[in-house]
Amino acid sequence: MENPLVSIIIPIHNVEFYLARCLQSIINQTYKNLDIILVDDGSTDNSLNIALQYAQNDNRILIIQKPNALQSSAKNMGLEFIHGSELRECIFGNTTKVTSYTQNSFNEESKIIDKETILKHFTTNNNHIKTNLEDISTLLTQKLPEDSWIRFVDSDDYLPLDSIERCVRETQNNKHLELVSHSITNDNNTNTNDITCDSLCRYESLSYDNGLEMLKNHKKYISSFCWQGIINTNILNRYNLRHQLGIYCEDLDFGTILYALCRGFLYKNFIGYIYTIRENSTMHYTKTMPQKMPRILEPLRGHFTNYKDLGEYFLSYSKVIAALHIYRFYKQINLQDKKAYKKLFTTYILHYILLYKNKDILNLINKLKEEKLIKYPRLIFLYSKAREIYRHPSRIFKSN
């Protein structure tokens, strides 16, 4: 397509001081053929009202208002509502059913969800949808419209005005592409290529017909994909790929699997995203235990004396869950020479298994054993300890 539609998905939660800047950067993109999906994840400040004001003046904007359940649930909700999806056509058009598949699986078995069932969970007012669902996957996971393009943007960040145009231009020049990636920076203009691009940032341009080969050749052992470019829906449809719920750093396993499924990858060394470092972000913890914390963290409150330790534990937990997802994917994937990539996947899995001190509140070890991921548990633990001691000599911890 000469002028493909790009769906931009923006999760929103209590970002009233940043949201206008973000939305200005989206609506004023030099590339105009945009489908802008704002997912308000239970904001308690003025964020939703700001979003509604922008939606009044731009008919490209769709707002979805849902109960709070962390950013991963908001991203997944946005995916199900991209332009052309059965769910969107069912709610706003004449489609009478939606076909649902198993999430994060190659399983092609499906079930039909009728319109009456769907409308029990959604109410609409023009381009504003309200839902009682925290997690859309409890209702359905669709095949997304083929050959569509998606971009995720965090609501406290923003884009250079030519970001989308430059990405789309590459897809027009290279018809086989499924993933277009670029460099990022922060709002202090400090180059941060190492966060997202690792060994790629020394190149002006780099392309691969196989995303796995890119990972293997460049040893990208941190391969999240949250801000780095645009994604073709064909990749997601191969595995019904969505973000893991109930964890932080949900892009770690999502990104790894995204690359592994990709059949046409391009990296261009231009700044296509500007992110904001702020003290009250999801990943920032003070030592003082707050009166109110994210609901998902509340069960951990009584096990820690300060918020920083609690946050570090939950981050460790999240990375282990990411490792489990990558492991399940590797067991399912059908490759011509699967053994050639065994070391790559093993390294990813080990990289994310960092057990926190002597606490196992959420039964991580049992989860690993149930999945038969721990074949040689002592070796994994020793690897984990050695790496942590190397990075943080003062933080020597014990596992069960």
Score class of each variant (00 low, 15 high):
Asn400Gln: 12
Phe254Glu: 01
Leu161Ile: 12
Thr124Cys: 08
Leu62Pro: 04
Arg166Val: 08
Cys167Thr: 06
Met293Ala: 14
Asn334Ile: 10
Ser394Glu: 15
Arg391Pro: 01
Cys226Ser: 10
Ser100His: 00
Ser7Gln: 06
Phe106Cys: 07
Met289His: 05
Ser105His: 00
Lys339His: 11
Ala322Lys: 02
Ile349Lys: 03
Asn14Ala: 10
Arg242Asp: 06
Tyr203Thr: 04
Glu109Met: 07
Ser318Cys: 09
Val320Phe: 02
Gly311Phe: 06
Asn28Ile: 01
Leu245Thr: 11
Tyr259Asn: 12
Asp251Cys: 09
Ile257Leu: 06
Asn46His: 13
Ser223His: 06
Asn94Arg: 09
Leu252His: 01
Phe270Ile: 03
Leu34Cys: 10
Thr185Met: 14
Phe225Asn: 05
Asn217Gly: 15
His83Trp: 01
His218Pro: 05
Ile235Ser: 06
Ile64Thr: 03
Leu364Met: 15
Thr185Val: 14
Asp198Trp: 11
Tyr352Leu: 10
Lys115Glu: 09
Ile247Tyr: 05
Glu2Asp: 13
Thr123Ala: 00
Lys219Met: 12
Thr138Phe: 13
Ile365Trp: 02
Leu133Pro: 06
Phe81His: 11
Glu250Ser: 14
Asp114Thr: 11
Leu119Asp: 00
Arg169Asn: 15
Glu370His: 15
Arg202His: 12
Ala51Cys: 13
Asn269Met: 00
Gln228His: 10
Ser224Leu: 05
Val180Ile: 15
Leu144Lys: 04
Thr131Val: 09
Glu86Tyr: 00
Ser110His: 11
Ile321Ser: 00
Gln172Ile: 10
Pro67Met: 10
Met77Tyr: 02
Asp187Leu: 07
Glu279Leu: 14
Leu364Ala: 07
Glu134Lys: 15
Leu159Tyr: 02
Lys338Val: 09
Ile277Leu: 14
Ile63Asp: 03
Val15Tyr: 08
Leu379Gly: 03
Ala340Ser: 15
Leu236Tyr: 01
Phe270His: 09
Asn366Arg: 13
Leu34Trp: 12
Lys367Ala: 11
Leu364Gly: 01
Ala51Trp: 04
Arg301Val: 04
Ile118Thr: 05
Asn104Met: 02
Gly78Asp: 04
Trp227Asn: 11
Arg328Trp: 01
Thr124Trp: 00
Tyr327Lys: 03
Ser205Cys: 11
His351Asn: 13
Lys319Gln: 12
Leu200Gln: 05
Gln24Ala: 07
Glu108Phe: 00
Asn363Met: 12
Ile230Asp: 01
Pro393Cys: 10
Ile82Ser: 02
Leu379His: 06
Gln142Trp: 05
Ile326Met: 04
Lys287Met: 08
Lys398Tyr: 09
Asp209Val: 08
Gly42Thr: 07
Cys226Phe: 08
